[in-house]
Structures are given as structure tokens and as C-alpha cells.
């Protein structure tokens, strides 16, 4: 009696695991990569929890203002009349203006609320596709010239799309070997010291975050990607994330990579995964 019961249970277990094995043989692999990445996310987020025990994880979408109370009060004043407002309006006009062939961005992106889909790893192409890259590919597919990547119309368009997408949750997935390699490329970039000053992103945006470096406090790296493009008072206009990457590379006297280079797209992919769970709240304003 007992033995039959055990036998029955055993065969049931075997049957269900067989079934599970069959149906998920594809996503099995992806589960492994996602598990590896999940571990990184938790190590990364724990670092900031320990550094700033009073800051809620969700608040890191506000960059340096999550950790610097004085600066935050000034910033909140500025955000009452956001300096990017007119640029978002321009972006809307650009978004709705038809291409020469009569189509428009809506044919590629619907109502534009697609922020959470980017960056994504495209397995067929074997590379990371960012929002800005997708915007230019939409243009080219419709016979238009690509836009320059650092500022101007591309930033206005992505600002409008970010605005349309406010409240979406960051959920970048690493579900194939190719995606994992791209992710690891970005991770290696983030932690590698470069330039004459021999500093890594992590040196400033993890080790030194919260401390003054000359006149600035480097923001926590978690949340770096949520609010781009950003209107900086220093720029007097919107700029893209890769423009900012280039600036940070130049500041440590490393040669910057081109915006939308493979290096920066992988870096963006890694940084986005590290911010999984936060809210997209772009465009943003910064000093």
C-alpha cells in the first residue's frame, strides 16, 4: 500500500518534470541567464541600500537628487516649470509630422509609449537596439536621413516618447547567450578603469557617490537610465544618454566612443538591467 503510493508519487513527479522539461526547453536557457543577471542586480542594489539606508530604491530614478537634499529642493523648484517642456512639445510635432512617403513615427511606434521596450537585445541581429537607434531605423526604413545622436531632434523625439511612457517599469531582459554577452560587455565597460585618470564608472558612481568631487556629487549608478534624455542647464537643451557617457569618458581623459557605438549600447543595456524595477520618468532636468 505504502509502496504503491510512493511509486505513484514518484511517477507523477517524473511525469510533471518531464512535461516541464518539454514545454520550457527553450526558456530553460533563458532562465539561467536571467538568474545570473538577477544575482548581479541584487548585489548591485544591495550596495546602494548599504550606502544610503534611508533612500528607497524607487527614488533612485531621481539621480543625484535622491541622495542630496539641498540640491533636491532647488531641483523640485525647477521641475515646477520643467525646462524641457517646450522641447517635448517640439518632439510631439516632429513625431506627428508625416515623412515624405506619407507615413510617420506612429507607423513604427504607435502612440510612442514604447520606452520600456528599449534597450532590447535583438537576437536576429545579434545586437542591442536602443530607442534612439530604433528612431533612426524607423526614419531610414521610410526613406528619411538618420538624425545626429547627441542632441537636437533625436533628443526631442525621445523626450516626447519618454514623456508618453512615464510610469512604465524598467524590465530589460537577458534571455539568450547573445544578450548575455552584450550585457557582460557593458558590465566590463562599467567596471574597467580607463583614461589618463584611471577611473571607472563604478569608481565615481558607486565608490564616490554621495561625496563631492570638485564641485559635483556623482549620482548613484542605479537609476542612471530612467530619465533620459535630460535637459541640462549646462547644455541649455536636451541631450541623450550617450552624450552624457561621452562627457564622463572625456572628463577622465579617455577618448569617448561614438554615440550608439556597440560599446555604449552594451553599457546602456547593462545599466538598464541594473535599474530593473524602477520607473521610467524621462525626460529629466539636471544641472
Amino acid at each position: 500500500m505504502l509502496t504503491t503510493k510512493i511509486k505513484l508519487t514518484l511517477s507523477l513527479v517524473a511525469a510533471t518534470s518531464l512535461l516541464a522539461g518539454c514545454t520550457s526547453s527553450n526558456s530553460d536557457e533563458s532562465a539561467d541567464y536571467q538568474a545570473l543577471v538577477q544575482q548581479d542586480i541584487s548585489t548591485f542594489q544591495t550596495f546602494f541600500k548599504n550606502r544610503f539606508p534611508d533612500v528607497e530604491i524607487e527614488d533612485y530614478k531621481n539621480g543625484v537628487y535622491a541622495i542630496d537634499e539641498n540640491a533636491r529642493l532647488q531641483w523640485e523648484d525647477i521641475e515646477e516649470f520643467p525646462p524641457y517642456e517646450l522641447e517635448v512639445d517640439d518632439g510631439k510635432v516632429l513625431y506627428e509630422t508625416p515623412f515624405a512617403n506619407g507615413k510617420s513615427y506612429a507607423d513604427c511606434f504607435g502612440d510612442g509609449a514604447v520606452r520600456k521596450q528599449y534597450p532590447q537585445f535583438d537576437d536576429k541581429r545579434g545586437e542591442v537596439v536602443t530607442l534612439e537607434l530604433a528612431i533612426n531605423e524607423c526614419r531610414e526604413a521610410n526613406g528619411e536621413k538618420p538624425l545626429k545622436y547627441k542632441k537636437g531632434n533625436i533628443a526631442k523625439l525621445s523626450a516626447y516618447m519618454a514623456f508618453q511612457s512615464r510610469g512604465q517599469i524598467v524590465a530589460a531582459r537577458v534571455s539568450s547567450e547573445g544578450a548575455y554577452n552584450a550585457y557582460m560587455g557593458g558590465k566590463e565597460f562599467f567596471y574597467s578603469k580607463r583614461g589618463q585618470m584611471n577611473l571607472s564608472c563604478a569608481d565615481c558612481h558607486m565608490r564616490a557617490t554621495g561625496y563631492y568631487l570638485r564641485a559635483d556629487v556623482p549620482s548613484p549608478a542605479i537609476g542612471h537610465v530612467t530619465h533620459f534624455p535630460v535637459h541640462r542647464s549646462k547644455w541649455g537643451q536636451l541631450g541623450t544618454l550617450h552624450r552624457r557617457y561621452g562627457g564622463c569618458n572625456q572628463n577622465i581623459r579617455a577618448k569617448a566612443f561614438k554615440p550608439q557605438s556597440e560599446e555604449y549600447r552594451n553599457l546602456e543595456f547593462f545599466q538598464t538591467v541594473m535599474s530593473n524595477g524602477l520607473e521610467f520618468n524621462g525626460p529629466g532636468s539636471r544641472k
Binding site: T43, F47, E188, Y191, S192, K193, R194, S200, A202, M206
Partner: peptide
């Protein structure tokens, strides 16, 4: 001189970057 140092830096990092992850 800069280029030689830069390449050394790169080689060192490619081997050792994981040791520089802050915990």
C-alpha cells in the same frame, strides 16, 4: 608614452576588471 600606458591599462583591465567591482 601615453599610448603605451593606455594599452597596458587596457590589458590589465581585460584580465582583472572583475576584481574592481565594489562590494
Amino acid at each position: 608614452d601615453q599610448a603605451v600606458l593606455a594599452k597596458k591599462q587596457g590589458e590589465l583591465m581585460m584580465e582583472n576588471w572583475e576584481k574592481y567591482i565594489p562590494m
